[in-house]
C-alpha cells in the first residue's frame, strides 16, 4: 500500500512541471517577464532536486521496512551500527551539499534580479483598500498622469515601480512578470518588471489587507512602444466633453452628486482623491479592481449598489434615480 501511495504522490509531484504547460494569465508557471522566466527556471530546478530527495527518502523507507531480516540476531550489533553511522553521516553530507548549492543559487538569482535596466520608465503604484492608484512619473511634471488598476508598459523595457502602501500593507504581484513585493505604509519599496511578450497579465494583491483582499486585482498590459506611446498620450489628455445628450446629463449628475468629492475627472471640477481617477475609466478593461469588464451595464450595476457587489469597499451607495443612473453610466462609459 505504501508503494501505491508513493506512486500517487510521485505522479502528483510530476504534475507540478506539467501544469506549466497550461495557459493562465496569472501564473508563476506561465511566464512572460524577464524575472519571472528566470524565477521559473530556478523554481523548476529546486522542485526537481527536492522531488528526487523525497523519492530517495521514500525508497530508503520502503527498504528499511521490508528488506529481508532472516538470520539477524537481536540488535544492536556493532558492525551494523557502524554501517548505519556511516550511512547517516553520508546522507547528512549530501544534505549539506544540496542546501549549500541552493543557498548560493538563491543568492545569485536574487542579485541578478535586482539589477535594474538603464532606460527606465518609472511608475508609482499606490495600494489602497481595495484598489490600485497608478501614477506615471517622469522628469517633466506636465507629462505625468494618473490612472487606476491598470498599468501599460512597453514590451522589452525595464519598468521601475515605486510601491507605496497608503493605508495598510498590500503586495504587488503579477506572477507572469515578476515576483511580489509589499507596499508598506511609511516605507517605499521598489520593483522592476519587464515583459518579453505583448499580452495582458493579471495581478492580484498578495498581502491580506482586510475585507476585500480577494478583489484587489490589476492588469498589466504590455504592448509595443508605439501603442504604449499612443495610450500614454491619450491618458495625458483631460476627459473628453460629452457629446451625447445622455452623457452630458450624466456629467452634470456626476458633478452635483457626492461622486465628485471622491473621484477626479480631469477637465471637470471633480477632483476627489478618495477613489480611483476616472478621467479615462471607459477605456480601462475592468472596473473595481478587476471585478468586472468595463461596460455600460457593469458601470451602472456598480454605481447602483457597490456594497452588494463588493461588500465593505470604500465607495458608498449614492442614491440615484433610474435615469440619473443611466446618464452617469453613459457618461463614464464615454470617458475613453
Amino acid at each position: 500500500m505504501i508503494r501505491a501511495l508513493s506512486k500517487i504522490c510521485l505522479s502528483a509531484m510530476l504534475a507540478v512541471p506539467l501544469a506549466a504547460c497550461g495557459s493562465n494569465w496569472q501564473s508563476a508557471l506561465d511566464v512572460h517577464g524577464t524575472s519571472a522566466i528566470s524565477l521559473k527556471h530556478l523554481i523548476l530546478l529546486i522542485v526537481a532536486v527536492c522531488s528526487v530527495v523525497w523519492m530517495l527518502v521514500m525508497v530508503a523507507l520502503i527498504w528499511a521496512l521490508w528488506h529481508r531480516r532472516e538470520g539477524l540476531s537481536t540488535p544492536p550489533q556493532p558492525g551494523r551500527e557502524r554501517r548505519m553511522t556511516i550511512a547517516v553521516i553520508g546522507a547528512v553530507i549530501v544534505t549539506a551539499v544540496i542546501i549549500g548549492t541552493f543557498t548560493i543559487m538563491s543568492f545569485f538569482a536574487t542579485r541578478s534580479l535586482s539589477v535594474a535596466g538603464q532606460d527606465e520608465l518609472t511608475i508609482r503604484v499606490r495600494g489602497l483598500q481595495w484598489w490600485w492608484g497608478i501614477e506615471y512619473l517622469g522628469p517633466d511634471p506636465s507629462r505625468r498622469f494618473e490612472t487606476a488598476n491598470e498599468i501599460h508598459i512597453p514590451v522589452g523595457r525595464s519598468v521601475h515601480l515605486k510601491l507605496e502602501g497608503l493605508d495598510v500593507i498590500h503586495s504587488f504581484w503579477v506572477p507572469s512578470l515578476a515576483g511580489k513585493q509589499d507596499l508598506i505604509p511609511g516605507r517605499s519599496n521598489e520593483l522592476t518588471i519587464r515583459a518579453e511578450q505583448p499580452g495582458v497579465y493579471r495581478g492580484q494583491c498578495a498581502e491580506y489587507c482586510g475585507m476585500q483582499h480577494a478583489h484587489m486585482a490589476l492588469l498589466v498590459i504590455a504592448e509595443s512602444q508605439d501603442d504604449f506611446d499612443k495610450w500614454a498620450n491619450a491618458e495625458r489628455n483631460a476627459a473628453a466633453q460629452p457629446v451625447e445628450e445622455e452623457a452630458a446629463a450624466g456629467m452634470q449628475t456626476f458633478l452635483t452628486k457626492p461622486c465628485a468629492a471622491c473621484h477626479t475627472i480631469r477637465g471637470t471640477i471633480a477632483a476627489g482623491t478618495t477613489g480611483p481617477d476616472l478621467t479615462h475609466v471607459g477605456s480601462r478593461r475592468t472596473i473595481a479592481a478587476g471585478l468586472f469588464e468595463t461596460t455600460r451595464g457593469s458601470l451602472a450595476a456598480w454605481i447602483a449598489d457597490p456594497q452588494t457587489i463588493k461588500p465593505g469597499n470604500n465607495m458608498p451607495m449614492v442614491p440615484l434615480a433610474p435615469e440619473e443612473l443611466r446618464d452617469v453610466s453613459a457618461y463614464l462609459a464615454s470617458l475613453k
Binding site: A28, L39, I43, I46, F102, S106, A109, T110, L113
Partner: peptide, 8 residues
C-alpha cells in the same frame, strides 16, 4: 527559504 523562490 530561497528568497527568489519565495517572491513567487
Amino acid at each position: 527559504a530561497s528568497v527568489p523562490f519565495d517572491t513567487q
